[in-house]
Each structure stands twice: as structure tokens, then as C-alpha cells.
Write a protein that binds this DNA or RNA. Structure first.
Lengths: 164, 164
DNA sequence: GGTAACTGGCTTAGCGCTAAGCTAGTTACC
DNA sequence: GGTAACTAGCTTAGCGCTAAGCCAGTTACC
């Protein structure tokens, strides 16, 4: 079963002091937690040279995926990024100050805003997304193509079954 | 290939606006990020009835796994939990105030401390760990035993190849 | 045995988030 | 057409973390 990893060590410790526990699920989620944290740190480092944080990347990337004219409302952004509106206000403030996006009034609803990528924001995200994907691809290189596909499939199954 | 999930949707959007990008690694890490966040929220809810947060659970669980006499130094705790010493000071303060652990001087090193689980802390963690594992087991129930084992194996491989 | 480098735990400032509440503007309904 | 319920975005207080720096105590080395 390959080398032991930190999660195996924890599972063994539990087995020693609490042999009654069923730790099977920990073998999956314990690793997901650790991978998420480790990879999150790497993404942060991958984006840092572009002058943005991971959270800010997510905002720019969401606008980029919206395609021309790269416009969404703060509400749409906070919904897709699972962020409170207060948190989104802060991110937009920083990105607007950096000249990467622009807030303008929504012509159809005077309560609302339109958030649009600037030229500078578009150029930056188009570079940064490459750095991020490269970091992820490198981290995945320990698995061959078939294993990676199998892993993605199992994770999709777990995600859809969990999100309900 | 099963149902589409949110990560599939994002991958498709990227393919539409930036068909040059290789998004294969995103299929793995995008799901790991989402699962980690969703499951993290659930763990928080699983521990809340016991009056502790997830971070506090981790401290108590690490002491519990240390076995009798359930004692470690703040330094050891912050190292295994990948936390700065400042962050650990805060967690220990809260848990000590709640009577779940005790700080006492290290007899061999007057700079150091020994952190020990109290009776109350031991009783609490022994209950809470069951709630946490139950939540994880429930979340994993969408996969059969073989799929779960296969997923755990692939994640172990990814984790060990990544942590270097 | 005295000094320099290091280590353990704590404190502080700063960051990014949430939860709750606010105001301005919109929708539904009688 | 007037009121009640709702919605968009922002503000504030509070939380938990990190990074940096501090002091007391320990180790290494000449």
C-alpha cells in the first residue's frame, strides 16, 4: 500500500488508544484537508509574483470566465465565491485601488453595481491563471494520466454526493 | 462520466474563453478545495454541540492521541498542527479557561510548559471524536467500500508525492 | 566560566473573514 | 398609489490567524 504518510500515522495512533473507533473516513478526508492546505499555500505563492492573493485571483478569474465584457455584480461574485457581501466589498476595494477592475452603476437597478475587468486586470489574470495551473500540474505530476483521471472521477462522485 | 459538478462547469467556461489552457489538474485540485471547505464547515458544526471549534478539537485530539498522561508542550502542539506559537497561545488560553486542559511548568526546562488534558478534557474529546468521525463517515457514504479505499490510496499517493 | 547563538512561550499589530445591522432602492399586493 | 417585504451594497465589531519582536532561560564553544 505504498509509503506511510502523516495520515496513516494519525490513524495508527488512534487505533492504539481508541481501537473501537472507525477511522476509515479519516483516510479520505484527513488527506483532503492536508492537500487543500498545502496546495492552497502553493497557489498563494504562485500568484504573489503577480501582486495578488489567492482570494483576489478568484475574483478576477470569475470575471474573466464571464467573457466579454467581463462584467458581473458584486452579488453574483459573492454568491459564486461563497463569500459574504462584506468580504466581497473588501476584495473589490483592493482590486479597484490596484486598477484591475472598475465599479460602475447598474443602469437597470440603482441599488446595484457592475464590476468590470480593466485592460490591466484582463492582462494580469491571463498571465496569473497560467502560473496557477502550472503549479497544480506540477503537484499532480506524481500520478500518471490514468490515475489522475480516476482520482478526478472519484472526487467528482464524492463532491456531488456530499453537496446535497 | 456521471453528473456534472461545479468544477466541470468552471472547466467548461475556461475552455470557452481560453481553449489554450490545460485544466486537467484543476479537475483534481478544484474538487479538493471545495470538498475541504464543505467538509470543514460540517466538522465545525459537528463539534459545536460539544462547545469547541474545529481548531480546538485538533488540540485536544492531538493530546488524546499522545496517550497517558496526555501531555505535550505548546511547541510540539504548534509543530504538529502547523500553527504559529502565537496562534497556539490563543487556543491554549481558551481551552485552559474552559477547564479542558492545564498548563504546568516543564520540570526539565524552565522556559517550557507541559500541556495536559484534564479529566473534563479527556471526557469531552472522547465524545467529540465520535461526532466528527460520524460526520465524515456519513459524507463518505455515497461511495462504496472499494471506491473509498481506492480514493484513499490515490490521495495518499498524491500527498506523499506533493509533500516534498 | 563567560559570551554568543539559540529556543520556548507570549505579546502586539495587522489582515481577511463573518455576522449583524444600516440605508437606499425595488417589488408585490391590497 | 401606499405600504410592507425584500434586495444590493456597505459599515462595524469581533474572531482567529500570521509575522515580527520580546524576555527568560538554555546550549555550545572558546
Amino acid at each position: 500500500m505504498n509509503d506511510k504518510d502523516p495520515v496513516d500515522a494519525i490513524v495508527e495512533q488512534w487505533a492504539a488508544v481508541r481501537p473501537d473507533l472507525d477511522t476509515a473516513a479519516m483516510e479520505v478526508f484527513g488527506r483532503i484537508f492536508r492537500l487543500s492546505r498545502a496546495m492552497g499555500d502553493r497557489m498563494e505563492k504562485a500568484y504573489a509574483p503577480h501582486g495578488i492573493s489567492r482570494g483576489e485571483f478568484d475574483v478576477l478569474a470569475t470575471l474573466r470566465r464571464a467573457d466579454e465584457p467581463y462584467t458581473l455584480s458584486p452579488r453574483e461574485l459573492s454568491a459564486t465565491l461563497m463569500l459574504t457581501t462584506g468580504g466581497m466589498t473588501g476584495r473589490l476595494d483592493k482590486l479597484e485601488r490596484a486598477g484591475l477592475l472598475r465599479r460602475s452603476p447598474d443602469p437597470h437597478d440603482r441599488r446595484g453595481l457592475q464590476v468590470t475587468l480593466t485592460e490591466k486586470g484582463l492582462a494580469l489574470i491571463d498571465e496569473a491563471v497560467g502560473s496557477g495551473l502550472a503549479a497544480q500540474t506540477a503537484a499532480l505530476s506524481g500520478l500518471d494520466t490514468e490515475q489522475a483521471a480516476q482520482l478526478a472521477d472519484l472526487l467528482r462522485k464524492l463532491l456531488t454526493s456530499t453537496e446535497r
